[in-house]
Simulated assay, not measured.
Amino acid sequence: MKRDLDGGGPPESGAPGDLIISVALNPALDVTYTVPDLVPDTSHRVTDVVSRAGGKGLNVARVLRQLGAEAIVLGLAGGAAGEQIEAELATAGVPARFVRLDAETRRTVTVLGRDTATVLNEPGPYVTAGQWESFRDVFAQRVRAARVVVLSGSRPPGVPETAYRDLVAIARAGGAETIVDTEGAALRHALTAAPTLVKPNAHEAADLLGRPVRTRDDAVEVAHRLVRLGADAGVVSRGADGFVAVSGGAAYDARAPERVAGNPTGAGDALAA
């Protein structure tokens, strides 16, 4: 059974305006357990539990809304976890429309111990061919009113490797610019559709370089390669060392004037936003 949920947002057609679409093909319910100390092969008493709607597409939309942008999430969701994600976005005032799946939306589990963080990422629910086609139809309708589309994160089982390539092509045909933040085969396919900007992090970019991205020069080399492979601009984020960007044949190096304390999770999503 499939059900489309519309959390509000802009009209489905018309000339592109200021709308930004953030695509969330594989959102997650992020569950964090805190324990005094994480010790393998033992039982643990959890001292704190936090659950929150997560995944790169949702993180991007949250930051965009905080910046005052008009943004909507388009994605896939199912089960009780999917309903919790929808409810949280509605409470936060983030418009969303999900194609409903029969299977349960994934969870990510993070166990925080003393100076340690262990993360378990589920693969995500299986998406049927019909459900994927329904999402493409929703996307094609909505993108006609969008100025920019952000395509970020992993693909759940059943969604083809060419998914981001196909969505970039649909967005371009609708007049929207595109930002792609993914890795591996999905990234390589997306580049063939000529996205406006591609933004892997240093770890993800290593696959394109064929070796670890350790230095600024390595990152610049990857950014140039992203452009040669089809992107108008290439950005490689380097964590606390900032990011490099290549556009129009010129290379740029940007970093914060000082390091910011705190949990770096989602920093790359904030950069995409």
Results as ranks from 00 to 15, higher is better:
1 M>V: 13
89 L>N: 00
87 A>Q: 12
161 E>V: 09
228 R>C: 03
268 G>M: 03
70 E>D: 15
156 P>Q: 08
2 K>R: 15
167 L>T: 05
197 L>G: 04
22 S>V: 13
258 E>I: 13
18 D>R: 10
219 A>L: 10
76 L>P: 03
196 T>Y: 14
125 P>L: 12
104 E>W: 05
125 P>S: 14
271 L>C: 07
60 V>L: 02
159 V>K: 00
100 R>C: 11
4 D>M: 14
236 V>I: 04
158 G>C: 15
268 G>I: 04
97 R>Q: 09
129 A>L: 02
71 A>G: 12
84 Q>I: 00
192 T>F: 11
72 I>R: 13
227 V>F: 15
162 T>M: 03
246 V>E: 11
114 R>N: 15
217 D>T: 11
72 I>K: 13
84 Q>L: 08
43 S>V: 04
214 R>Q: 05
60 V>F: 06
91 T>P: 07
12 E>L: 10
266 G>C: 10
34 T>P: 00
263 N>F: 09
9 G>P: 12
253 D>G: 09
189 H>V: 09
217 D>S: 11
261 A>S: 05
97 R>H: 09
216 R>Q: 12
51 S>Q: 15
205 A>W: 08
20 I>A: 13
16 P>R: 07
257 P>M: 07
263 N>M: 14
50 V>N: 11
130 G>D: 13
5 L>A: 02
144 R>P: 07
214 R>G: 03
181 D>N: 05
72 I>M: 11
18 D>I: 08
145 A>G: 13
166 D>K: 08
225 R>Q: 08
82 G>Y: 07
120 L>T: 15
194 A>T: 12
196 T>Q: 10
6 D>F: 09
121 N>H: 07
184 G>W: 12
102 D>Q: 05
269 D>T: 04
18 D>M: 06
161 E>K: 13
257 P>K: 06
147 R>K: 06
229 L>Q: 14
127 V>Q: 00
92 A>Y: 04
59 N>P: 08
174 G>F: 04
201 N>W: 06
139 F>I: 10
11 P>W: 01
154 S>D: 06
65 R>N: 03
4 D>N: 14
132 W>T: 02
127 V>I: 02
14 G>M: 00
139 F>H: 09
212 P>D: 00
221 E>W: 00
271 L>T: 00
107 R>N: 14
16 P>G: 03
180 V>C: 11
115 D>S: 09
174 G>S: 05
71 A>D: 08
